[in-house]
Write a protein that binds this DNA or RNA. Structure first.
Lengths: 191, 191
DNA sequence: CCATGATGAGACAAAGATGTCTCACATGGA
DNA sequence: TCCATGTGAGACATCTTTGTCTCATCATGG
């Protein structure tokens, strides 16, 4: 049936286009629709057939980022075991999406008044909940608010993604650097 | 002499325009020249008389950011006393410029191939040098590279500035939150 | 009072991006 | 083979932003 082919084809292509766009916009957030199309190996006309406009594309990327974040949160099993281990699992699970997250994170800064996607609120809550759990169990210090720890995690993920993309940090160290700084800080502690 | 008046007037206005532009672009990085002009309380024509174009404006903002960073670095006396105290002084001194830094930090991400202003390299080196000093003195752990600690400091400053501007973190906590997370991390350590 | 110079308002063209449209082509199934 | 459908190429108008220009106004100092 043509309808089935249509559905499958669109789905596959849409995902491919989306990931190409993410890869490009991550590096050059002001890229043109034409550049996005070329990066995906399609024409601008076809790009417009998949996404009504630039806004629709960015919103689709946001939905993708949210979905990947939720998947990472699920995979990290935030409620299991020590909170610090959950943080390690979370950073590991979220690493593949870090560049996309960095793009969306800085993109969100310029939606001044606009209401942000409710998906982010949910994600924020889950991450903040993890830090709160760690505080309640005595693992984490209580003088740093869960909201700030969440924000700091986003900032470190973005910094890490950028540092890796510019060669200032080795890709293989991404996980370690972020987790160790977030959990342990720069100070050398006496064991 | 008209030349003296001209010079003084231009200098004063230029600084005022620059700071208005920084305040606006910090919140809305895609603001129009017209919006920048209105924010500064001048007309677009006058804005163009001060800065040849948008590029010139951004480059002037970059120069301002670099100058404020260098001033903060000087004021923090990075070579005096324990490195951790120097970090505290640095964050305190750089706080007023944090929002501008956040704007320039994310702005720099989209100059893909372009060579970045040499001033940043110098600043990076001074900050990395501070972390290196802390490592040499045994204060800081040596498994986190100075380059990463520098990058992380930028990321936390940006996150902190954004979190404050969106009301997620109280302005008075900015300094404490950043310094404590950067130095001590989230883990509760036994004293 | 007058002249100089900065300013604001607005017109104007140029450039870039976007969204829409048409048409030719190719591929894959009936 | 024939038809349908997705695609690429490109034309096209539109919109936004930008940079430049002119002209009237206003303030300041001589």
């Amino acid at each position: 049936m043509s309808h089935m082919d249509y559905g499958c084809l669109m789905a596959v292509d849409r995902d491919h286009v989306l990931r190409s766009a993410a890869a490009l916009l991550t590096r050059k957030s002001t890229a043109t629709m034409d550049e996005v199309a070329k990066a995906a190996g399609i024409s601008r006309a076809t790009l417009h057939r998949h996404f009504a406009g630039r806004d629709a594309l960015v919103r689709a990327l946001e939905a993708l980022g949210i979905a990947e974040c939720e998947a990472a949160l699920d995979a990290a099993r935030l409620d299991d075991g020590p909170a610090s281990d959950a943080v390690r699992r979370l950073v590991g699970a979220i690493e593949p999406a870090a560049a996309l997250l960095a793009f969306l994170y800085s993109e969100n800064q310029l939606f001044e008044g606009e209401e942000q996607n409710a998906g982010w609120t949910r994600i924020d809550d889950r991450i903040a909940g993890l830090f709160r759990r760690g505080q309640a169990s005595g693992e984490f210090r209580i003088d740093l608010t869960p909201a700030w720890l969440t924000e700091a995690l986003y900032g470190l993920l973005a910094s890490g993604a950028w540092a890796v993309s510019e060669g200032r940090v080795a890709s293989k160290d991404f996980n370690y650097m972020i987790v160790e700084l977030l959990l342990g800080g720069a100070l050398r502690t006496a064991y």
